[in-house]
């Protein structure tokens, strides 16, 4: 016990001596104010990035036709594995975990089990993303930024159905076996329908119906896995490279 008391006296003397001689100087109040502002700005930017990416994922799932396939017999593990934007999902998860780690020192986060905080952030992110998606924000961003390479690559890479073997069009004619469609960009395709093709239509396909085709494309033919009849609202949800440029086919124009 005596040794500890002696040690503590030494500590006190050394610390106070360093302080009195000016060997140790405290950081100024402004140092902490500026540091806190930078910290808060960093967390805010991180949160905005998470919200942007997660709302983009929701947008991409709708715009790429992923959600249209949910009732299909082809919609299984493989469709999910091939169609989900895994890289973006991983970035969102890394962002959420980083936010969690950065906010650990705040009493409301460390006093609450991490699971609850994690779920809370996820619910918040999904809710805000759904709200953001409903305002067509991403269509507007693409409209204005499609000449900027990163924007073009992101939107066309993840949201364009053509990147996932999907295409939307309007039926021009139907013969015994195949369907002929025209896309909003006035491209014509012959859709080869086989016995394994799944037709998703409540009352059969007719000319002028709008359809979403999932299948492998080879030049001007598509080997269809799925032909799904879609309505105007569903059509408008799909990605279109000419959102802001009047398409040649007025009936397919995005409003």
């Amino acid at each position: 016990m005596e040794k500890i008391e002696q040690t503590t006296r030494e500590i006190s003397e050394k610390v106070m001596s360093a302080i009195r001689t000016g060997g140790i100087l405290p950081h100024s109040r402004w140092y902490f104010i500026i540091r806190n502002i930078i910290y808060a700005a960093f967390v805010l930017v991180l949160l905005l990035a998470i919200l942007y990416l997660s709302s983009f994922i929701l947008f991409a799932l709708q715009a790429s036709g992923f959600t249209l396939l949910s009732g299909s017999k082809f919609f299984g593990i493989m469709t999910i594995l091939n169609s989900l934007p895994w890289v973006l999902l991983l970035l969102v998860i890394i962002g959420i975990v980083s936010t969690l780690l950065l906010s650990r020192s705040a009493a409301f986060t460390y006093r609450t089990p991490t699971l609850y905080v994690f779920l809370g952030i996820i619910i918040l992110v999904i809710a805000v993303s759904a709200i953001v998606s409903s305002f067509d924000l991403h269509k507007k961003i693409y409209e204005r930024g499609h000449n900027f390479k990163p924007i073009k690559s992101l939107y066309e890479g993840f949201a364009d159905p053509e990147m996932h073997n999907g295409i939307a069009g309007e039926i021009q004619s139907i013969d015994d076996r195949n369907i002929f469609i025209i896309t909003p960009r006035n491209e014509s395709f012959e859709v080869i329908v086989s016995s394994s093709t799944e037709i998703m239509s409540s009352d059969g396909l007719t000319v002028n119906d709008k359809v979403f085709i999932q299948g492998v494309r080879k030049e001007k033919t598509i080997m269809a896995d799925i032909v799904k009849e879609i309505n105007e609202q569903e059509r408008n949800m799909l990605f279109n490279k000419s959102y802001d440029r009047a398409p040649n086919n007025p009936s397919m124009q995005i409003k």
């Binding site: 610390v15 360093a18 140790i24 100087l25 405290p26 140092y31 902490f32």
Partner: peptide
């Protein structure tokens, strides 16, 4: 020492 440096 750290407490003094960060006292503000």
């Amino acid at each position: 020492i750290k407490a003094y440096i960060n006292i503000q």
